[in-house]
Design a protein around this nucleic acid. Structure first.
Length: 825
RNA sequence: GCGGCGGUGGUGGAACGGUAGACACGAUGGACUCAAAAUCCAUUGUCCUUCGGGACGUGUGGGUUCGAAUCCCACUCGCCGCACCA
């Protein structure tokens, strides 16, 4: 007879089939249910090929939380979907000729297969994909709502253009001047595009970060990206052309130190200003060169400062000085007003510019008590509170902070400026000149102009086309039959918008649709969404810290303003998981040959071992390198637990397992350890996502059971059933199997165990005896013994005697049930 | 430059201001076996040791404390995000 052994290949599919047959993980929209709700969500995957280990970690993590919440009495919503539109599928289509829809659907099938095979407890009745017309119908509907409210608009602007992908990109999708997708250098192009007015929400997006439980570094990144700065807007007048130019400055206290004035090359007035001056030709040449430079080259802070004079001057409002005007590419059109005052004594960039052009440098702020500051030094250092104004007219002598305020008040009174706040955040550019995305539901009529597609005509379906090759305009533009339509307003011939939406639009609201996925008359029923939302636990990679997470927050706020939602933030708690690196410590990539395929791991060790291992590797928010021997170790642990269950299956009569009454000896040790493990796993899982130590606690329990093979049967049954119950969120199949072998019951239907307080503490404990803070001995003491008793016990030990060695005892610190520290002079 | 995070054995990592190194990997020795696999047991921070134990140990230097990996200050190294943002 073959030896019985742990065989995940047999156990896992058996339970998966049962869960599927019984729809175990489905949850209804019964919003009057008494039990508390919990919405556990992992970021939806972009389906490409097959899932990788990062997905395994993501979903194993979320699944553990979903299981834990279910067993602690919550109604858990744990859905799944696919972020199905996007460039990779389209680029693949160009290369291989396989239609994006076909390749995407194929990949979705693979993801679906593996999520089942991993045993993730998903409510499959709510599955969705963003490329399905019944989903993007409502993406388009939301777009039209935004358009109605002025939150969607068209504007011509200098936008980032990727020459490889042949499309514009959002600021957030440009990393170090390169396209996030393909890594090519991005160019600037002056184009008319669709934007979402996210900047209207800058302040609220910033403020509400304080209301959500997110990792500090993610909040910091968002704050950074929003980039709020306080300062003043100040008007400089050009008398020659009779135009006022406002600048934004965070340092109104340095206004008297302005010695020149600079405009961005994109500033619309640059040519007008230079016209007729002897500098006109130089200006044209400089501006043209600046505009054709790549974003990377131009954005390099280390590049020497360049620029040309405009041949004009502006008046400094505080002292009437005439400041020469320049155009220089270190000034950005997209921030502030596209023009700055140059204060070389107190700004590094202005200092470099002034030095290069021989402009005067006049310090106006100096350390209190000090004399003339070192000019070069001053421009480069951060400023402190302890400074006063110098060379500043009537403000001279004031401290810098008070002076700043006084100058702003003066500016306001004179009508030449006011306090002002600036944000770094730009509006979200959402149009893309690509095929595989959600069509923008807008029609251009020669008579009526821009007309929305009427709601009843939604969705505007993406047509099938043959040629995906981008040519600087959307491939949809070539689908003449589709483009040509009639104006919904006047009925004349009109043309459809051919750009598609950024796929981040699709994923900015999917978590709302899960709540009410089959609604065909509205994107959702507000009562249902208000019941499930916000997402209680959201899990995903930190790479979405800005893009997806900022856009989703914006969506919720905008939709709440339209009374479509009753909350302000989509994700209450966020957990950002670390990456799984290759065994060599590098990011996994096929070129490095260090990619771990989850399919292979699952085949060799089973889904439970794979899931359990990725949760055991270390703190889940940290990166961790893959180790084959590490998975084997976890597999061994699961097999040990299985053998314990298998041994009991032969002996026990089944039935519910209870903690034995008044256990003694080995039995007591096991009962205590089991309760310790319950307490440990519960506190590690609840709130702090410390699954690595939770799993370690179950390992300890299992090790303890092996050390006490002679313990009485009820105690062993209790300990093994407890181990199975506790391991279930991390290794659901094995937990289920062992629990069933020991008790005949379904563990997922059992409430999460409660630790018995009485069993958490023993009658005796090991008293640590210290002399001057160093451990010198240990002795067994009764739990709850008095301070005096403990002190006596400690002083009597050999180790303490030796080290006190007749010296004077200054004092004795007693920590009850823990230690005694004898302080010796 | 600005913002955030971190530095603990051979490795991944544990550790409410209270026994540093849980758990796991690896290594060494042993049991079982004809042998191997699987499994089980023991040892495993460094150095010294008369084998009782002792000294030293959490990036570096200082401080607070009876007691510091943990709190404070300075430094240093590393990682991540943003960056000519006025």
């Amino acid at each position: 007879m073959a030896e019985r052994r742990y065989n995940p290949a047999e156990i896992e599919p058996r339970w998966q089939a049962l869960w599927e047959r019984e729809h175990t993980w489905e949850v209804s929209n019964d919003i009057s249910a008494e039990a508390e709700k919990s919405y556990v969500l992992e970021m939806l995957p972009y389906p490409s090929g097959e899932p990788h280990v990062g997905h395994l970690k993501n979903y194993a993590l979320g699944d553990a939380i979903a299981h834990f919440h279910r067993r602690t009495g919550h109604r858990v919503l744990h859905p799944m979907g696919y972020d199905a539109f996007g460039l990779p599928a389209e680029n693949n289509a160009i290369k291989t000729g396989v239609q994006p829809r076909v390749a995407t659907d194929r990949s979705i099938a693979a993801y679906r297969h593996w999520f089942h095979r991993w045993g993730i407890s998903i409510d499959w009745s709510r599955e969705l994909a963003t490329h399905e017309p019944r989903y993007y119908h409502w993406t388009q509907w939301i777009f039209l709502k935004f358009l109605e409210r002025g939150l969607a608009y068209r504007k011509e602007a200098a936008v980032k253009w990727c020459p490889f992908d042949q499309t514009v990109l959002a600021n957030e999708q440009v990393i170090d001047g390169r396209c996030e997708r393909c890594g090519n250098l991005v160019e600037l192009r002056q184009l008319e595009q669709w934007f979402f007015r996210i900047t209207d929400y800058a302040q609220r997006l910033l403020d509400d970060l304080d209301t959500i439980d997110w990792p500090e570094h993610v909040k910091a990144m968002q704050r950074n990206w929003i980039g709020r700065s306080e300062g003043a807007e100040v008007t400089f007048r050009s008398e020659e052309v009779g135009i006022d130019y406002a600048v934004f400055t965070t340092r109104p206290d340095t206004l008297f130190g302005a010695t020149f004035f600079v405009m961005a090359p994109e500033h619309p007035d640059v040519f007008k200003l230079a016209a007729g001056t002897e500098r006109e030709a130089d200006v044209h040449e400089y501006v043209n060169r600046a505009l054709t430079e790549s974003a990377e080259v131009r954005g390099d802070a280390d590049k020497p400062k360049t620029g040309v004079p405009l041949g004009r001057t502006v008046t400094n409002p505080v002292n009437g000085e005439q400041l020469p005007m320049y155009v220089a590419d270190y000034v950005l059109m997209e921030y502030g007003t596209g023009a700055v005052m140059g204060v070389p004594a107190h700004d590094q960039r202005d200092y470099e510019f002034a030095t290069a052009f021989g402009l005067p440098i006049r310090p106006v702020v100096a350390p209190a008590g000090g004399d003339e500051p070192d000019i070069a030094e001053e421009a480069f250092t951060a400023h402190t509170d302890d400074e006063r104004l110098i060379n500043s007219g009537e403000f001279t002598g004031m401290d810098a902070v008070a002076g700043r305020e006084a100058i702003v008040v003066w500016l306001e009174r004179q009508g030449v400026g006011h306090a002002s706040v600036n944000f770094r955040l730009r509006d979200w550019l959402i149009s893309r000149q690509r095929y595989w995305g959600c069509p923008i539901p807008v029609i251009y009529c020669p008579r009526d102009g821009l007309v929305s597609v009427p709601e009843e005509d939604l969705p505007v379906e993406l047509p099938e086309i043959e040629d995906y090759q981008p040519r600087g305009r959307s491939p949809l533009a070539a689908a003449e039959d589709w483009v040509r339509t009639t104006c919904p307003r006047c009925g004349r011939e009109a043309r459809r918008e051919t750009d598609t939406m950024d796929t981040f639009v699709d994923s900015s609201w999917y978590y709302l649709r899960y709540c009410d996925p089959h609604n065909d008359s509205a994107p959702w029923d507000r009562r249902i969404v208000d019941y499930w939302m916000p997402v209680d636990t959201y899990i995903g990679g930190v790479e979405h810290a800005i893009l997806h997470l900022m856009y989703s927050r914006f969506f919720v706020k905008a939709l709440a303003d339209m009374d479509l939602l009753g909350f302000q933030e989509p994700f209450k708690t966020l957990f950002t998981q670390g990456m799984i690196l290759g065994a060599d410590g590098n990011k996994m990539s096929s070129s490095k040959g260090n990619v771990v395929a989850p399919s292979e791991i699952v085949e060799r060790f089973g889904a439970d071992a794979a899931r359990c291992y990725v949760l055991f590797m270390g703190p889940l928010d940290q990166d961790a390198a893959w180790s084959d021997t590490g998975v084997e170790g976890v597999y061994r642990f699961l097999a040990r637990l299985w053998r314990l269950g298998d041994a009991l299956a032969g002996q026990s009569k089944g039935g519910a397992v209870r903690q034995p009454v008044a256990p003694e000896g080995d039995a007591l040790v096991l009962v205590r350890k089991a309760n310790w493990a319950i307490d440990k796993v519960t506190s590690d899982v609840r709130g702090r996502f410390a699954f690595n130590t939770a799993i370690a606690a179950v390992m300890e329990l299992v090790n303890e059971i092996y050390r006490h093979p002679e313990a009485e049967l009820p105690a062993r049954r209790f300990a093994v059933a407890t181990a199975a119950s506790l391991v279930f969120p991390f290794a659901p199949h094995l937990g289920t199997e062992v629990y069933e072998m020991v008790t005949g019951r379904r563990v997922w239907e059992e409430p999460w165990p409660d630790a018995d307080e009485d069993m958490l503490q023993a009658d005796t404990f090991e008293l640590v005896c210290q002399v001057n803070g160093r451990v010198r001995d240990r002795v067994t003491a009764a739990t709850g013994a008095s301070r005096e008793e403990l002190e006596q016990l400690c002083l009597a030990t050999q180790g303490v005697q030796t080290h006190v060695d007749g010296n004077e005892i200054a004092k004795v610190i007693v920590v009850p049930n823990k230690l005694v520290n004898v302080v010796v002079k």
